[in-house]
């Protein structure tokens, strides 16, 4: 009896929302086509994909592609490069973003801090193609500004973008340059939320500026820092495809190739669709576990998660 009335209540609710479901039709068709069909196509990771046979018609070969990938010599290299760039960027640019946020907040020269803030956000909106152009103007061996400075101090000009020693640094520095302002926003927002009474109390107690930062400012934004780090760890396998793709070249391949660039070349230049999909799937599965895991921790810490 109870279930029956609940059922009729549900169907009444559904009927009441009939026009809502109408609104959903087109977005749902979109989601199924462009988000779920690719997941379905992901099955070719387990198949010997032949274009003529299509996704469904190709022969199942189990985990062979995964085995090929894990046993290959480039597996370790790709994983090492991917992690090197993600962690390198995290370790280098996160403290920079925090420092930028704190100095913008602490500075009493409003014009200066506002100018820095405005300029620092801007590069986030530029593409990596544009960034590549800026880096060329800056770093080119023959006619870049940086090499001019090196020459002025009597040093030897370097080909920063094509030498194995300098390339990883250029990747990490240019990412920091582009994104530090944007990453600082969330910390600036957290700083704005600090209760002014805390600073008044500190002043009454005779705290110095240093003590203020050490005992009020930093502890206040610590939860935000933890959450940002956790969320970044969730996407640690995304080392920045667009950036590497624009900046890398054959001479630096051994230190530049990350999982995503490899998938692109293997799949779309060498037409190894099955193998490339397997690697993409491998990365996607690990990425999903990491996101679920880090989000759970963030939620437990009382922050809001992605969903």
């Amino acid at each position: 009896m109870v279930t029956k009335s609940r059922k009729s209540e549900l169907s009444r609710e559904i009927r009441r929302h009939a026009s809502v479901y109408v609104l959903l039709i087109i977005p749902l068709v979109y989601y199924i086509t462009f988000k779920y069909v690719p997941i379905f196509n992901g099955q070719i990771a387990f198949k010997d994909y032949m274009a003529l046979d299509g996704v469904l018609g190709s022969r199942w070969i189990g985990l062979e592609h995964f085995r090929t990938f894990i046993q290959s010599y480039y597996f370790a290299e790709l994983l090492r490069n991917t992690l090197m760039y993600s962690f390198g960027k995290l370790i280098f640019s996160l403290p920079l973003a925090i420092l930028l946020a704190i100095t913008i907040y602490e500075s009493k020269r409003r014009r200066l801090s506002r100018t820095v803030q405005t300029l620092a956000y801007l590069p986030h909106f530029l593409s990596w193609v544009i960034m590549y152009g800026i880096l060329l103007a800056l770093l080119a061996p023959g006619d870049g500004v940086v090499n001019d400075i090196i020459k002025a101090f009597g040093g030897k000009p370097r080909a920063f973008l094509t030498s194995v020693e300098t390339f990883p640094w250029i990747v990490i520095f240019s990412d920091a340059w582009k994104e530090m302002g944007w990453s600082a926003i969330i910390f600036i927002a957290a700083l704005m939320g600090i209760d002014p009474a805390l600073f008044e109390a500190a002043m009454v107690e005779g705290a110095t500026s240093w003590q203020r930062v050490r005992y009020i400012t930093l502890p206040s934004i610590r939860p935000v820092i933890v959450i940002v780090v956790l969320l970044r760890l969730g996407t640690i396998l995304d080392a920045g495809f667009n950036q590497i793709f624009m900046l890398y070249s054959t001479p630096v391949l051994s230190v530049a190739d990350i999982i995503d660039t490899w998938v692109y070349r293997q799949g779309l230049l060498e037409f190894q669709f099955g193998l490339a999909t397997a690697v993409g799937l491998f990365k996607g599965a690990i990425g999903m576990l990491l996101i679920l895991f880090t989000n759970r921790i963030v939620k437990r810490l009382g922050g809001s998660s992605l969903y």
């Binding site: 929302h17 988000k35 490339a276 999909t277 990365k283 996607g284 992605l306």
Partner: peptide, 30 residues
Amino acid sequence: IQSLPGRRYLTILIIIPYIFNVGLIPTYLL
């Protein structure tokens, strides 16, 4: 719309592709 029956499932439906990224090739094929 909070009162919508099935809202939770709908949310899950749009989040799955977001956190599970199958990569480049499957979309290219599509």
